[in-house]
Design a binder for these strands. Sequence first.
DNA 1: CTAGGGTTAATA
DNA 2: TATTAACCCTAG
Length: 257
Amino acid sequence: MGNPKQKWTKEEEEALRKGVAKHGTGKWKDIQRDPEFNKFLFSRSNIDLKDKWRNVTGGGSGQGQRDKSRAKTKALVEAAPSIQAPVPNASSVDEVMAEAAVDASAKVVDETKIVPRHDDDLISEALSNLNDPKGSEVGAIFNYIEKCHEVSQSFRRQLRTRLKRLVVLGKLEEEHEDTRPRAPQTTGVAIFGETLDDAAIACAYRIAEAENKAFIAAEAVKEAERLAKMAEDTESIYQFTREILERCSGDEITLLA
DNA sequence: CTAGGGTTAATA
DNA sequence: TATTAACCCTAG
């Protein structure tokens, strides 16, 4: 019977791209469940996201590459519930990356978008927002920053490494819940106390520089991912990617030490 | 739940 | 007719 194949709109496609750039390929359910993306993807299912992403991507040549000039359409298919913008969501790393992929030297100005305000405020605000009396776990902190800043996976790894590095160095105090580690449910939930707030400020500055380098690293990762599909050599690519990340973050680690 | 394959509708 | 894009089904 009536099956008018609803075409994807710009909002939906953009939301999908953003969701993938945020969480990464896969996790379609998470993207669909996300309140921010659910506004546009509320009528789409996780399978639809995957299918659409399959068409939108593909490696660069061959198939996929769905037309990019086709919006106008009707948009807002089912009387969507007033589209509001509760979240600031101003910076778009993926957008910058995409632009940079074509011409990086011309889009250097967008760099300010990645680092719009002070860096110390980043973690400070995260702690304030989380409002944790004992402190916030490292996961929640980076998660908050990730949501506010839309960082890429490359940066995510660097941030995590940085925080862990500080713990090892002794700058941060790792406080356990109490006696005995209870159950092995968590992969190492480290709750930081007040010391984090102090060290976070210093760490934030490093993060600022990290973001800048992460931007460059992201391009390298993107290239590596492309090669991965062509060569399908995970092992070689893994080392290649690792070298690039290490090379880009090598300077940062030195600063941290 | 995700990945892949196959089918159907619309288009060049 | 061939190709693309959405939709649906199945396997892991």
